Every structure is written in C-alpha cells, then in structure tokens.
Simulated assay, not measured.
Amino acid sequence: MADTPLLHQWANDPELWASLVGWHFPYSAGSAENWVRNYDGRSIDSISLCIEDEELGLIGTASLKPINWKDRNAFYGIMLGDPNTRGRGLGKDAAMAIMRYAFDELDLVRLDTEIVGSNKVSLEFHVQALGWKIEGVKKDWFYRDGKRHDKVIAGITADDYRLGSSSYWKA
C-alpha cells in the first residue's frame, strides 16, 4: 500500500499518458487504493507487476494481459513512471526479465505490443534494444494533444528473443 500514492500520481500524469497506448481517465486516490487493495494476482489471464530498483524503489509497472493460453501469446506493456529513471538501463532490465518469464517460465511463443507512433524513444527501445519487429502501422489511430498519431504494432517471438538475448544474460 505504500506505493499507492506514486501509482496514483502516474495514473494522473498527462505527459506520461500522452505517450502510452490506451484510453485513460484520471482517477482518485481512493480508486488507486481500491485497485491495489483488491488486486490479488490470481487472475489466470493477466499479470501486473511493479518494477523496483534497490536504491530508487518503485520506478514503473509491467504487464502481460491478456494472456492467451491456447495460442500461447500475450499482450505486453511496460512503463517507467519517473522520467529521471529512463535511459539508465532499468527499463531494459525489466523488459528482458518480463520476456524471460513469458518465454522460459510461462512457455509463451510470442508477445505483442502497441506503441504510439510519435513515441520514438519507445519504438527505438523495442526494436533496437530488445529485438522486437514492427509488424504493422494503423494510420491516425490515436488522438493526443490535438493531433492524430499512428499505432505501431510490434511483436517478438520466443525464438527471436532467445537468439538476441543470450549475450544479455551472460553479461
């Protein structure tokens, strides 16, 4: 419960949400507290995790949802809430850990994500740092700050992850 105020702050940060996928309305501190209190982590089709650093504490969130167990794939999302934590390798560590968990523990065969086309940092991060592939673009999908933005669809397979991750885990 100690992290609830920070989660509430991030949930109501318009700059942060302008670069993320999804529709989001601001919500109250009480709503954030209820979500944390009622989240039991026992859903069979979604996993929501907090990203923590030993020195900095809570720095973001990551999720796999929904998980499609029949076809062995999931939608992946990651967010670093504090801009000062970005660019330090913490997001890559978290993303690599989530992919390792998805592919090596849950035995999923692919992950998908969607990225706001104007979020060049996220696009570069996923494609260049993590090895994801851009698989499509939906023109003018998002409306942010009075402008239309494309939805970039990206994915990674377990095979591509394993091919690109071996040197990362040896470091």
Rank of each mutant, 00 (worst) to 15 (best):
F25M: 13
F25A: 15
P26D: 15
P26W: 13
Y27H: 14
Y27S: 03
Y27M: 02
Y27R: 09
S28H: 12
S28L: 06
A29Y: 15
A29H: 15
G30Y: 01
G30Q: 15
G30P: 02
G30I: 00
S31T: 12
S31K: 13
S31I: 09
S31P: 05
S31C: 04
A32F: 11
A32I: 06
A32E: 08
A32L: 06
E33K: 09
N34D: 06
N34V: 00
N34K: 11
W35K: 02
W35D: 04
V36F: 03
R37W: 00
R37H: 04
Y39H: 09
Y39V: 03
D40P: 00
D40F: 03
D40K: 04
D40C: 00
G41S: 04
G41C: 07
R42N: 08
R42F: 09
R42D: 05
S43M: 06
S43L: 04
S43I: 02
I44R: 12
I44F: 03
I44Y: 01
D45S: 12
D45W: 03
S46N: 10
S46W: 03
S46A: 09
S46K: 08
S46P: 02
I47D: 02
I47K: 11
I47H: 09
I47W: 04
S48C: 03
S48T: 11
L49P: 08
L49V: 11
L49M: 14
C50G: 13
C50D: 11
C50S: 14
I51E: 08
I51G: 04
I51T: 03
E52W: 05
E52H: 14
E52N: 08
E52G: 03
E52I: 08
D53L: 11
D53R: 10
D53V: 04
D53I: 05
D53K: 07
D53E: 13
E54M: 02
E54Y: 07
